[in-house]
C-alpha cells in the first residue's frame, strides 16, 4: 500500500508502515537525529528529529523517526517551534556529552554554544546520551550483552550484573554505532579491550591486520557453518587472494 503526503509542500510517496524520517531522508530533506539508525527499530529517544505534522484537523509536534506515515498529511520540518524545542533538547544533551564534537556542532547550528546545565547526577559512561543505539545493535546481532539498566534519571547503559559478559563477542558494533563515540574500545597486540574484557584477535594470515575477535569467529562458525579458514584473512587480502586465484585459472 502506498501513502502520499507532503513534506514542506513537496509531494512524496512512501510505503504504508514506513517511518517518516526514513522517507524524508530518502527525498533529501535534512532532519537531524542522534538515536536513529535505518537498520534498527526506532525508539524516539533523543527527541531531535522533531517535525510538525498536520492531518485530519490535528496538528502535532512529533519525532519523525518513529512516526508511521499517514495518507494526506502535511509535514513541516523546520518551524520555529521545531527549532526552539530542538535547541532545548540539544542543550540538555550537551550537558551529558560535552565531549562529543558531533553534538557540539549540531547544537551550534541551533545557536546552542554552551549549556546552562551542569553534568547530570548519574552518568557512569561519560558523554553517553542514552540513545540506546548500542543496545539495539547488540540485540539485533543476537548477542544480547548490553542492556539498559535502571530507569528515569538513573538510567544507564550496562551489562548484566554489571560484570563482563560471556555474550559480548567484542565485535565493537556498539562503539561504531555510537553517535558520541563514548564507548571505549582499544585494539592492542593482546587483543581488543571493550566492556571490561580483552578479546584475543584473529589476525590476517597475509597482512597481520585484525580480522575479528576469536569469539566473533567462533560464533560465526557456529552460525554459518563455514570452515575456520574462511576467517583467516582480512577483507582486502581475501579479495586479492581470490583475484590471484582467479587469474591463475584463466591464464
Amino acid at each position: 500500500m502506498e501513502r502520499r503526503f507532503k513534506i514542506n509542500d513537496i509531494d512524496v510517496k512512501a510505503r504504508a508502515g514506513e517511518h517518516l524520517l526514513d522517507v524524508a531522508r530518502r527525498y533529501g530533506f535534512e532532519i537531524p537525529s542522534l538515536c536513529h539508525h535505518e537498520a534498527l527499530p526506532p525508539i524516539g529517544a533523543c527527541r531531535i528529529c522533531l517535525v510538525e505534522v498536520a492531518w485530519g484537523g490535528r496538528r502535532e509536534l512529533c519525532t519523525s523517526c518513529n512516526f508511521e506515515v499517514i495518507e494526506g498529511m502535511q509535514v513541516t520540518t523546520d518551524t520555529p517551534a521545531v527549532q526552539h524545542h530542538r535547541a532545548m533538547n540539544l542543550e540538555l544533551l550537551l550537558a551529558r556529552a560535552p565531549g562529543s564534537a558531533r553534538l557540539r556542532e549540531l547544537a551550534a547550528q541551533y545557536g546552542v554554544r554552551r549549556t546552562r546545565f551542569g553534568p547530570p547526577a548519574t552518568s557512569p559512561l561519560p558523554n553517553c546520551i542514552l540513545c540506546e543505539l548500542c543496545v539495539r545493535a547488540c540485540e539485533q546481532l543476537g548477542n544480547h550483552a548490553l542492556t539498559m539498566v535502571g530507569r528515569g534519571d538513573k538510567k544507564r547503559i550496562g551489562l548484566a550484573f554489571n560484570s563482563p559478559s560471556e555474550q559480548c563477542t567484542g565485535c565493537a558494533s556498539c562503539a561504531s554505532v555510537c553517535p558520541t563515540e563514548c564507548i571505549p574500545v582499544k585494539d592492542t597486540a593482546a587483543g581488543r579491550t571493550i566492556w571490561g574484557q580483552t578479546h584475543p584477535l584473529v589476525l590476517c594470515k597475509v597482512c597481520g591486520a585484525p580480522v575479528m575477535t576469536e569469539r566473533q569467529r567462533a560464533k560465526a562458525i557456529a552460525k554459518k557453518g563455514l570452515p575456520e579458514e574462511y576467517y583467516d584473512f582480512c577483507e582486502s587480502c581475501k579479495q586479492s587472494t581470490a583475484s590471484k586465484r582467479f587469474a591463475s585459472i584463466v591464464w
Binding site: A45, C46, A95, F117, G118, G152, D153, K155
Partner: peptide, 21 residues
C-alpha cells in the same frame, strides 16, 4: 516523576531532572 520516568526521552528524563534542580 523524574524518578518514575522510564528514561527514554531526553525531554522527560533530562528535562525533569533539570527542572528538579
Amino acid at each position: 516523576l523524574k524518578f518514575e520516568s522510564c528514561g527514554n526521552c531526553t525531554s522527560c528524563r533530562d528535562g525533569l531532572e533539570r527542572m528538579h534542580e
